[in-house]
Nucleic acid binder design. Sequence first.
DNA 1: CCAATCGTTCAATAATTATTTAACAAATTG
DNA 2: CAATTTGTTAAATAATTATTGAACGATTGG
Lengths: 185, 185
Amino acid sequence: MKKATSGKMKKPATQREEFRGKIIDALAQTMDLYGVNYSFGQLYGIMFFEDKPMTLEKMQASMNMSKSNMSYAVRALIDSKMASKLKEKEERKDLYVAETDFFKAFQSFFATKLQREIDVMRGALDAVIPPLSETILELNTTEEERKLCLEDLHKLKHAVNYYEWLQRFVNDLQSGIYFEGRQDG
Amino acid sequence: MKKATSGKMKKPATQREEFRGKIIDALAQTMDLYGVNYSFGQLYGIMFFEDKPMTLEKMQASMNMSKSNMSYAVRALIDSKMASKLKEKEERKDLYVAETDFFKAFQSFFATKLQREIDVMRGALDAVIPPLSETILELNTTEEERKLCLEDLHKLKHAVNYYEWLQRFVNDLQSGIYFEGRQDG
DNA sequence: CCAATCGTTCAATAATTATTTAACAAATTG
DNA sequence: CAATTTGTTAAATAATTATTGAACGATTGG
């Protein structure tokens, strides 16, 4: 992804808006690093500075983009728990706020991604290890093939260990213990 | 990114190759999650199973893709330290190996990404905080504008704390202390 | 209960990214 | 040192993803 050329954000009027723009760009670049659409990252940045809950209409105005795209964007942010929808509405319109605590945002974003990774890999490992083991155990498997299967199995067992460790890591991340030495909140 | 339809991998001949294919697909999906080109992720998977060093030619044959693209792919893997180039060559051809220790691969991949994030964000914060502070200190700043700037400054200071914490986290990640409880190596 | 409006989805289009082909410089062998 | 051969890059093309506009059901306010 890349800085979109369509629907460019409105030009900074004050110096403060210019500063915000720089931080928003850095945030969007950062999120882009992890596979998040650059524009969706920008929206996070805008919501980060906007202290009040925002409507889709407001987002549309800030980003100069279609409401449709804002709908997709805000949903993506909600999926990775970087934003949330409020229960209240403002004259029929849904309201959304960004998670402005970077520590919590980090926790949510990575925990979500890592958990998805674990689920995908565990799914594949669980599907492959049993029949691979079976092949090794079968009498009519050639000696050469058995040797190759054993090597693969060894690698997959290493992967299982890794993903068990990673699951503990994610649990710890969610528990908050890594944030114990933090300064501020 | 998405499973490429061009240059599809050769069909599995043995059951073992089919199993490998499933794991390779899961690995590629996983890397895709973090913004890595799916095909490049597949290449990592192939190198992961191939125990010997590989040449570009070999990669080309395994993936049914151009040597050019394999050159790009292997470089991306090297950049995130998931693979490395050997000093030796095999009849003029460069040799590459994948990092097969998932713990080390994790360490490298995330440390690289997170460090890039820290650098981008610190760059923006360092560029913005001093002039923003200056604006607040200036006499001819309106009361309203000063209030808004102060709110922004507060948020950015929180971000600085976060990135200081994240830098310590990355240092710890690189030191290996998070892997102390691991089972296997 | 009707008219307006919100948010979502689908299909179309625009924009970006992935991949290839071709050209080239560096290295190497005979 | 000439002829190959390698790996990289640039430009062109193919494929995918992002964004929009329009259509629709749901909701709500009159």
